[in-house]
């Protein structure tokens, strides 16, 4: 009797522990950005291979390989890689942070707004940001989405004056992640 009680409490503690360390992840997250200026060719790209890991306590990490951004116009993609993002030198864009007041196990199907505080690292520069995120959970999958703006100058990305009129000063970014339990 005593033994089984001990065993039971062990199982209980273990199960608590496992839920506290639950992880959700994806390798196929999408990031879309646009820097459109009216009446010029649209400057936009999509990435469908973004990796992300979210822990139960809101700890979050994401990684986008710069070369994976696809533009509609091939020349734009080449310029983006060679002149702006310099993907050969800086192959990754990463984000590390934590969602405030978050607990994945308490998520419901209702979309809830949270704030994530973290650091973007791109083009050899880092920037701390505070961004809004919308999160919900359905059939065990955690859905995370966010929309925000970034300035290329914050990451030391210089837009040559020849094309600066064709690229917006602020880049609008949309992130969509479907995180499966690991």
């Amino acid at each position: 009797m005593k033994n089984s009680l001990i065993l039971l409490s062990f199982i209980f503690i273990f199960s608590l522990n496992s839920s506290a360390q639950d992880k959700f992840s994806t390798k196929q997250g999408t990031v879309f950005f646009e820097a459109n200026v009216p009446s010029f060719e649209p400057v936009e790209a999509k990435h469908e291979n973004v990796s992300a890991i979210l822990k139960n306590d809101g700890t979050f990490a994401a990684l986008a390989l710069v070369t994976g951004f696809r533009f509609k116009i091939a020349l734009m993609e080449e310029h983006f890689n060679e002149n702006f993002a310099e993907s050969a030198t800086y192959p990754k864009i990463t984000f590390k942070g934590k969602i405030k007041d978050f607990e994945a196990s308490k998520l419901t199907e209702e979309i809830t707004e949270f704030t994530i505080i973290g650091t973007f690292s791109m083009h050899g520069k880092e920037k701390e940001v505070k961004l809004p995120v919308k999160v919900y959970k359905k059939n065990g999958i955690v859905y995370v989405s966010s929309q925000f703006s970034l300035k290329p100058e914050d990451f030391d990305i210089k837009i040559p004056s020849v094309v600066s009129k064709k690229i917006a000063e602020e880049i609008d970014v949309t992130v969509n992640l479907q995180l499966n339990k690991m």
Partner: peptide, 16 residues
Amino acid sequence: GRCIGYDDLFEIVKLD
């Protein structure tokens, strides 16, 4: 495929 880089979160190489 086209190699887009090394993902250190999952320690995998990605091709698209």
